[in-house]
């Protein structure tokens, strides 16, 4: 049987040369993402903004969006968004947080139920008060920050500091890409998006660590090789695996995206973006960053360890 190979058995692409392109490109996208985040912002879901989200399904025939809008409009609830959700029978209603009190939202839900429950089945109701939403946002940020720090220490402990810094810059870049993507397409950013971001961190690092692992091994084996050549060699050696794993993960995620239902679609989309970006960055960013960070080929031979630590790390901003 002829086996399928996406990547030839032996490749010798000169990935390091691409860094003159990939560094500025990543930097530009990262800056653009930050700008998007600051200027346009994320489309925060109720988890972080407070408010209500109601999913209803018409009991008979397709839902009449304009009628739902009119009904809700007559209740005078402030900013209300009504949209179709997946199927023509289903409607997603978002209502901004009302008033000052924590539970003022409850009256709204009762009113909406009263107005729509004859013709519609209430499939999902989520109400988040302003205080809880603030706490959830803090927790989310804390989770992302804490994982980055812990992983930094782990890689530092297992490798060298350049690897740790390289991995964190790479991961940070991936997170920025994802956030930028969320901002650009105004995808609902909810609690599960944070879970997606964290999974992306895990995945991107997974990829990066595999490449770094090979670099470390080759550093020990080929003490005299030029760093650039050695990095190229390491990436080429792991290229087949990197693409294999990305493809299998993407296959699984695409299945989830198309068949897993509306509720988790944005969650899965974020992960798909993350896997693509993570694969790119572990090849074009993680490895070449080591050159920028002043990794020396002698780092694992034990004689010059202190020397490398003195290198200026101020350049480490991509």
């Amino acid at each position: 049987m002829k086996l399928l190979r996406l990547v030839p058995a032996k490749t010798s692409y000169r990935f390091m040369r691409w860094r003159v392109l990939s560094f500025p490109a990543s930097a530009i996208i990262a800056v653009a993402a930050v700008l998007m985040f600051v200027m346009v912002g994320l489309n925060y879901g109720i988890d972080f903004k407070g408010g209500s989200l109601i999913e209803i399904r018409s009991k008979q025939g397709p839902a009449d969006l304009s009628q739902v809008r009119a009904t809700l409009g007559s209740l005078q609830l402030g900013d209300v968004q009504v949209q179709e959700f997946g199927e023509p029978e289903e409607v997603l209603i978002r209502i901004e947080h009302q008033g000052e009190a924590e539970d003022s939202q409850q009256e709204v839900i009762t009113k909406v139920r009263g107005a729509l429950s004859d013709a519609y089945e209430f499939r999902r109701t989520e109400v988040v008060g302003p205080r809880v939403s603030g706490e959830l946002a803090n927790k989310g940020l804390l989770a992302v920050g804490l994982s980055l720090v812990m992983i930094l220490f782990y890689i530092w402990f297992r490798f060298e500091w350049q690897f740790a810094v390289g991995a964190i810059i790479t991961t940070f870049n991936d997170i920025l890409f994802t956030i930028g993507f969320f901002s650009l397409f105004q995808i609902d950013f909810s609690l599960s998006s944070i879970a997606a971001v964290l999974t992306i961190i895990g995945y991107s690092l997974n990829d990066t660590v595999v490449v770094y692992d090979r670099i470390r091994e080759n550093l020990r084996r080929y003490k005299k090789m030029k760093l650039e050549d050695l990095l190229d060699l390491s990436i080429n050696e792991t290229l087949s695996r990197t693409t294999m794993t990305s493809v299998t993960t993407l296959l699984a995620l695409l299945a989830l995206y198309f068949f897993g239902g509306e509720v988790i679609q944005s969650f899965v989309l974020a992960m798909i973006i993350g896997v693509v970006v993570g694969t790119y960055s572990s090849i074009f960013l993680a490895a070449p960053l080591l050159i920028l960070l002043g990794l020396r080929t002698s780092v694992f031979s034990g004689e010059d360890k202190d020397g490398t630590e003195d290198k200026d790390s101020g350049k480490a901003t991509a």
Partner: peptide
Amino acid sequence: LTVMEERSVGPGLGQDSIEAGKIAALIGA
């Protein structure tokens, strides 16, 4: 007592989610 957060899912949506999850998992696998 004040309601700070409420999330409720009707049995219909839950069942649909399980079905969708099963199908997606099978196809993915």
